[in-house]
Simulated assay, not measured.
Amino acid sequence: MDLNADVGEGFGRWALGDDHALLDVVTSANVACGFHAGDPETMRRTCERAAARGVTVGAHVGYRDLHGFGRRFVDVSPETLTADVLYQLGGLDACARAAGTRVGYVKPHGALYNALVRHEAQADAVVDAVRAYDPTLPVLGLPGAVWLKRARVAGLPVRYEAFADRAYTAAGTLVDRRRPGAVLHDVGEIASRCVGLATEGRVRAVDGQVLRMPVDSICVHGDSPGAVAVARAVRSALAEAGVTLGPFAGGLDRLSA
């Protein structure tokens, strides 16, 4: 099972999250590409740290929305969105290559991640960007999302993820962050549900229904309070349950591809 976290989300002199500690725990790193967070220096520094620890670098692409941290829907044209994603991919991959690795997968961020569950035009736009950049690049997202269905048809490698610290609706989508209980904080509860996801491919929705959700990766939000403690608890619980941890995409291996 892969364990991923959002990192590189500082900007200039402002830091967000403990990237140093998280990169010692996770197997894949979703690195902000400068649109919702991050900047060129932060991107390069984060790639260097990930490469030094053998952590796969993923492009965490989002809307051009620094002020809103990429958590506001942007009604951007498909042509513009394709170009924006290409720009982010190229920028991060340059930083990764300079660090001796390269981008190993693509994962949308925030509002874009949620929009691509149903928004067909934007889904096609992101798929077009990844195909144009590298049609062998895996894409990571929510099971059932329309963009992953389009990606699979387009021939892109598709991988699925669940969130360690987010609540799910009965439909298998994420509970809106503005609703109470959308983000989980009990470390023991989070670790236990991650073991269930990894060993049984199941998770309980907010209405009590058990959802079938086989996934390739589990995400811990790097900007959540106590993110490092949560990540460590999840990793420890998975190891105790006999789950082998490792990246689903090989960033270092891809360098020679």
Rank of each mutant, 00 (worst) to 15 (best):
L3K: 03
N4L: 05
A5Y: 04
D6K: 02
G8K: 03
E9H: 07
G10L: 03
G10V: 05
F11L: 14
G12K: 12
W14K: 00
G17C: 08
G17F: 01
D18F: 03
A21C: 09
L22D: 04
L23W: 03
D24W: 02
S28N: 06
A29K: 01
N30Q: 09
N30F: 07
N30C: 09
G34N: 10
F35W: 10
H36N: 10
A37D: 10
P40T: 02
E41Y: 06
E41M: 12
R45Q: 12
R45W: 00
E48H: 00
R49Y: 00
A52N: 07
T56C: 11
H60N: 12
H60G: 03
V61I: 15
Y63F: 15
Y63K: 12
D65P: 09
L66C: 09
G70R: 06
R72E: 13
F73Y: 15
V74M: 13
D75E: 14
S77R: 11
S77F: 09
S77E: 14
P78S: 12
Q88C: 13
Q88S: 08
G90A: 13
G91R: 05
L92K: 04
D93M: 10
A94P: 01
A96G: 04
A96Y: 00
R97Q: 08
A98Y: 08
G100I: 05
R102I: 01
V103R: 04
V106T: 10
V106D: 00
P108I: 08
N114A: 14
N114E: 14
N114Q: 14
A115Q: 14
V117N: 11
R118E: 14
Q122M: 13
A125H: 11
A125P: 06
D128P: 03
V130W: 02
V130Y: 01
R131Y: 06
A132Q: 15
L137H: 01
V139M: 04
V139G: 03
V139T: 08
V146G: 00
W147M: 03
W147K: 05
L148N: 03
R150A: 13
A151L: 05
L156T: 02
L156G: 00
P157N: 04
Y168W: 09
Y168R: 05
Y168S: 04
T169S: 05
G172A: 08
T173F: 08
L174S: 12
D176I: 05
R179H: 12
A182H: 12
V183F: 10
H185I: 05
G188V: 08
A191N: 11
S192I: 01
R193V: 04
V195H: 08
G196H: 07
R204F: 07
A205Q: 07
V206R: 09
V206Y: 07
V206H: 11
G208R: 10
R212F: 06
M213C: 13
P214T: 05
V215P: 03
D216Q: 05
S217E: 02
C219M: 06
V220A: 11
H221A: 14
H221E: 12
G222S: 02
G222D: 05
S224N: 13
P225T: 14
A229P: 03
A231H: 06
A233D: 11
V234N: 10
R235Y: 01
R235P: 07
L238Y: 06
A239R: 15
G242D: 05
V243E: 02
F248C: 06
G250D: 15
G250V: 02
L252S: 11
D253G: 15
R254E: 00
R254V: 06
L255R: 15
S256G: 12
